[in-house]
Amino acid sequence: MTIAKLGYTLLGLFIVWNWGFLMGATFRKIGARVSGRYGIPFYQPWINFFKSMGVRTTITHGVMYYLGPVFRLTGGIGLLFFMPLIYTGDPNGMWSNFSFQGDLVLILYFQVFGMLGMALGAGEGGHPYSAMGIARGLAQHAAVELPLTLAILSIAIQYDTFSLYKIVEAQQGGFQNWVIFTNPFAGAAIILSMLGAMGHSPFNLVKAPNEILIGPATEYEGTYLGFMQSAGSILHVMEAVLFMNLAFGGATNWAEFIVKTFLIYFWSVFVGMVFPRFKIEQSVTWFFKVPLVLGLLAIIVFSF
């Protein structure tokens, strides 16, 4: 049973990895079309990945430099391992992975895990842009986590559980049961903090192009970069899955999964196409204003 479950989880990982690459390519393609270009071919991320893996020489800055991309990939895979991908009606079913009572708390930890790993690794790389990107990333992440955690607590109070599977289960039976409708304040806080978690413009402070270029990844090359590309694609999908499970009723089959994660991901992409980048103090202040108030309201409404 466990072996089969592990197999399904790894298969899910493979699907998510490819789907993340495809979504990344679509993101680039939409950006190109908005500026009137033809854009990259849709298979470009796979080629980039294989090319990065085929680089012949590598450098090292020490042990933490190696562990940075590994931690980030672990963060992505950890999210996937403990989060139900597809709701099948059976808590030990094939696509609910290793979801358990209280997995929501673990998932909140795993969200920070990759970021911290990158902070250690990029810090040892020693490039000033890495340090700047990491400092901004951690500051913004703290600002994102606060409304998100409040919204999650509100949902936990609402359904009286910390299990993602049960939250998804409670939202079945039509869109009127989704958290976004049953608990609109928490839903709104989640939708807004999602923009920060996805890291697209106007919240792309970590990788701010034209400013600190690509931020923490400045010193990474070759195989490390390949790992980080994979981790990025997995993390993007898994963030979308988390928000899908929390506020949009989860998915009952792969088609629904694809459509919902695509729409959630592209909500942040389209916002990014319209709005220019915030400065770090603007970004943090914004998260402390609108989403935080919505999160507090969500808590207050469901506490009394």
């Binding site: 270009r37 033809y38 990259i40 192009p209 690509i214 400045t218 090359e221």
Partner: peptide
């Protein structure tokens, strides 16, 4: 539009 040929700009020599 060189992106359609898979040519992209990169800000760091490492990559």
């Amino acid at each position: 539009d060189m992106f359609r040929f898979g040519v992209q700009m990169r800000p760091t020599p490492r990559q």
